[in-house]
């Protein structure tokens, strides 16, 4: 990577941000394509996977979480994890995942 010293600290240069953005755009394209092309039984898992990949990429690279202090990751992922836990549990009691 031909970045300045400061950038090496983050492991990211402007060029690599653009690369990430291109990947994100490509995934978005794929997501939209599910609306036109029939993915069959793969439809749901594929969409959810792509959503998660995009989410994690933005958080890790654009928000620097991957390169930053672990304390930030702890704070953010605790919130995210609790949210997933309590709301999925609540939805489960509504039999949301059964149908």
């Amino acid at each position: 990577m031909n970045a300045t010293a400061e950038h090496q600290e983050h492991g990211m240069s402007d060029a690599s941000y653009i690369k990430i953005a291109i990947i994100l755009a490509a995934i978005t394209g794929l997501e939209v394509s599910t609306y036109y092309v029939d993915f069959g039984p793969l439809f749901m898992p594929a969409l959810l996977t792509m959503m998660i990949v995009k989410f994690v990429m933005v958080v890790s690279y654009f928000m620097h979480l991957k390169f930053d202090s672990k304390i930030f990751s702890f704070l953010f992922y605790t919130g995210l994890g609790l949210a997933l836990f309590v709301y999925c549990t609540a939805l489960a009691t509504f039999k949301f995942f059964v149908s």
Binding site: F76, G79, L82, A83
Partner: peptide, 12 residues
């Protein structure tokens, strides 16, 4: 970051 962690539960 704390605020964003909290926002996860709001949007959740």
């Amino acid at each position: 970051w704390l605020f964003l962690g909290s926002e996860c539960l709001l949007f959740g």
